[in-house]
Nucleic acid binder design. Structure first.
Length: 526
DNA sequence: CGCCTTTGACCGGCGC
DNA sequence: GCGCCGGTCAAAGGCG
C-alpha cells in the first residue's frame, strides 16, 4: 500500500527540467486506486494518513523540482546576461583602444549579435586610411551575398546603431575578424538593414579569417574559390596597394589543417561536401581527396582529405576559405576552430614577413593559439602557410609546436614579430597594462561564461589558458568523437549553445587580443 | 532524374 | 624551356 510513482532516473531528470506537472498527474491517478483498496474505515484512516504523508512528500519533491527549475532558469538568464555583459566589455575595449571609434554604439543589441562582419574583401581595396579604430568582431561573418554593396552592408550594427549616425564609423578604420562562420549561425545575428548604416566604404578592414578571397573576391560576391592557384580572380583590384596585395596573397593561401583520428573516409564536420577530385600526392601512398562545400551553391570553401602516411588512422583535413552561408551548429564549431587558426596564421605571417605593410602589428596569435587544439603547428611550406591542429594527441595539453620559420625567428630573437613568439612571450609582453582589465572587467564574465568550473583567472595568460583548455576539451569531443552526436546536443538549450559555442569563444578571445595588440601598436606608433 | 563519385585530362606554378 | 607536381575540370557511370 503505497503510492509508487515509478520513474526511471533519467526520466525523472528530464521531468525536473521540464516541469513538475507530470508528476502531479501521476500522483493524482494513483490515489484513487489506493483508496479503493482499503475495506475498513480504520484502515481508511490509516491509509489516508499514509496518503497524506505521501502527498506531502510528493509536494516536497515537487517543490524541489520547482526550485531546480528556477535554478536552471536563473542559470540560463545569468548566462545570457553574462554574454551580453561580455558584449558590453568588448565595446568598452573598442572605446578605450579606439578613441576614434568612440562614437560607436555603447549599447548592445538585445539579441546576441556579437558583431557584424565586413567582408574581408574590403580590406585591401580600402585600407589606405590611417589606423583603423573600429574593431569589428564577427561571429557570423562572411557576407552572404556578394558585391561591394554587400560588403558595406556587412558593417557592424553596433557601430552604427548606437551612435545613431552611420557616418560615425564610416570614416573610421575597421578591424574585421571574419571567423568563417556563416551569417546568422550560432550567436551571430546579422541585421543587414541596420548594418548598412555603419558600413564604411573607406574603412580599412583587416580580415583575419581564413578566407583567402581578396577585396575583389568579396566584391564579386565572395564566391570565388579561395586559395586556388588557378582561378584566383584577385587581379582586378586596382585599389589594392602592394602591401595589401602581399597580405592578401598570404591570406589567400592560408589553410588550416586538422589532424584527427578518424575511421571514416572524411571527418564529420557538419558540412556537406562534394568530392571533385582525387590525386595521389607525392610522398604519401594514400590518395588525397578534394572536396567542395555544397551547403551553398557558390561556397568557396574547399577541403583536402588525406590519410597520414605514417598512421592511416589519422585523417588530415585541410580547409580553405570561409563559408558564405549559414552553417549547421556542428559545422560552426569546426569553422570557428579553423578560422581562429587561420586568423592566427594570417596575423602571424603578416607580422613576421611584412609587419610594415600591415598597418597595425597585431598579435592575435595567443588568443588564437589558445584555441587551436592540443597541438598547433604553423608551417609555411610550399609558400602556403598552414596551421595544423593536431587533435590526435591524448590529454589535450595546450602545447604548441613551432616550426620554422617562426620558431627559427623566435629563436633568433625576433619574438616581437614572429607569430609563435606571441604565443610564448609576445602577447604577455605588451599585455602588462591589461591585466587589470581582465581581472576587473572581463575575467568574471569570461570565467563564468567559459564554464563555471574555470573560475576567474587572476592573470590574462591564465584566462587564455583556461579558455583554450575549455575549448580544447570541446574541440576534442567534437573533432575526435564525431559530429553526428554533437549537433543535436549543442542545440539543446540556449545556455548550452552560449557556453559551448567555440566560435564565440574564439572570436572573443581573438578580438580582445587584437584590441590589446592594436592598442599597444597604436601607442607605439605615437 | 538529380546528385554524387570516379577518373583521366588539363592547367598553372615551380624548380632545374 | 622542360618536366614534375598539385590542383581542378568535366565526362562517364553509379546510386537512391
Amino acid at each position: 500500500m503505497e503510492v509508487h510513482v515509478e520513474r526511471p532516473p533519467q526520466a525523472a531528470m528530464e521531468e525536473k527540467r521540464a516541469d513538475a506537472k507530470p508528476e502531479i498527474a501521476e500522483i493524482g491517478t494513483a490515489l484513487p486506486i489506493v483508496f479503493e483498496s482499503f475495506p475498513s474505515t480504520q484502515r481508511d484512516s490509516a491509509g489516508i494518513k499514509q496518503e497524506e504523508r505521501k502527498l506531502e512528500e510528493a509536494k516536497a519533491e515537487m517543490g524541489e523540482v520547482r526550485e531546480e527549475n528556477e535554478r536552471l532558469k536563473a542559470m540560463l538568464s545569468r548566462i545570457v546576461s553574462q554574454y551580453q555583459s561580455l558584449q558590453m566589455h568588448f565595446l568598452d575595449v573598442v572605446k578605450v583602444h579606439g578613441p576614434a571609434a568612440n562614437k560607436q554604439a555603447d549599447k548592445l543589441p538585445v539579441a546576441p549579435a556579437p558583431a557584424k562582419v565586413k567582408p574581408p574583401g574590403a580590406t585591401a581595396a580600402e585600407d589606405d586610411d590611417g589606423p583603423d579604430d573600429l574593431v569589428s568582431l564577427s561571429l557570423g561573418s562572411r557576407a552572404n551575398s556578394g558585391g561591394g554593396g554587400g560588403a558595406r552592408r556587412k558593417c557592424h550594427e553596433r557601430s552604427s546603431s548606437s551612435s545613431g549616425t552611420a557616418e560615425t564609423a564610416a570614416d573610421k578604420g575597421q578591424l574585421s575578424l571574419g571567423l568563417g562562420i556563416a551569417p546568422g549561425s550560432g550567436l551571430s545575428s546579422v541585421d543587414d538593414d541596420k548594418a548598412t548604416a555603419g558600413a564604411s566604404p573607406a574603412a580599412p578592414v583587416l580580415n583575419l579569417s581564413s578566407d583567402s578571397s581578396s577585396a575583389d573576391d568579396a566584391a564579386k560576391s565572395a564566391q570565388a574559390p579561395v586559395g586556388t592557384t588557378r582561378k584566383s580572380p584577385s587581379g582586378g583590384a586596382g585599389a589594392v596597394d602592394g602591401a595589401d596585395d602581399e597580405v592578401q596573397q598570404q591570406a589567400k593561401k592560408a589553410r588550416v589543417s586538422v589532424r584527427v583520428k578518424c575511421d571514416t573516409p572524411t571527418m564529420p564536420d557538419g558540412c556537406q561536401w562534394r568530392k571533385y577530385g582525387q590525386k595521389i600526392s607525392k610522398g604519401n601512398p594514400c590518395p588525397r581527396a578534394y572536396y567542395r562545400c555544397t551547403v551553398a551553391p557558390h561556397c568557396p570553401v574547399r577541403k583536402q582529405v588525406q590519410r597520414c602516411a605514417e598512421d592511416t588512422s589519422i585523417l588530415i583535413t585541410t580547409y580553405e576559405g570561409v563559408h558564405n552561408h549559414q552553417l549547421p551548429p556542428a559545422a560552426s564549431a569546426m569553422a570557428a576552430r579553423t578560422s581562429a587558426a587561420a586568423a592566427m596564421l594570417t596575423s602571424g605571417s603578416t607580422t613576421s614577413s611584412s609587419s610594415a605593410s600591415l598597418a597595425h602589428g597585431h598579435h592575435f596569435t595567443l588568443a588564437a593559439a589558445g584555441m587551436l587544439g592540443p597541438t598547433a603547428m604553423v608551417s609555411t611550406a610550399a609558400s602556403c602557410p598552414t596551421v595544423t591542429l593536431d587533435l590526435t594527441a591524448p590529454g589535450g595539453g595546450a602545447s604548441l609546436l613551432h616550426t620554422s620559420p617562426y620558431a627559427a625567428a623566435a629563436a633568433a630573437g625576433y619574438e616581437s614579430k614572429a607569430m609563435p613568439a606571441a604565443w610564448s612571450s609576445g602577447y604577455l609582453g605588451y599585455s602588462g597594462a591589461h591585466p587589470s582589465y581582465y581581472a576587473n572587467k572581463s575575467s568574471p564574465a569570461l570565467g563564468q561564461l567559459f564554464g563555471g568550473s574555470l573560475g576567474v583567472p587572476s592573470r590574462p595568460e591564465l584566462l587564455y589558458a583556461q579558455i583554450g583548455q575549455s575549448y580544447l576539451e570541446r574541440a576534442n569531443s567534437v573533432g575526435g568523437s564525431g559530429h553526428g552526436a554533437v549537433a543535436p546536443a549543442v542545440t539543446d538549450t540556449i545556455a548550452k549553445a552560449i557556453t559551448s559555442d567555440p566560435s564565440f569563444q574564439s572570436v572573443l578571445a581573438a578580438a580582445i587580443t587584437s584590441v590589446m595588440g592594436r592598442g599597444g601598436a597604436a601607442a607605439a606608433q605615437k
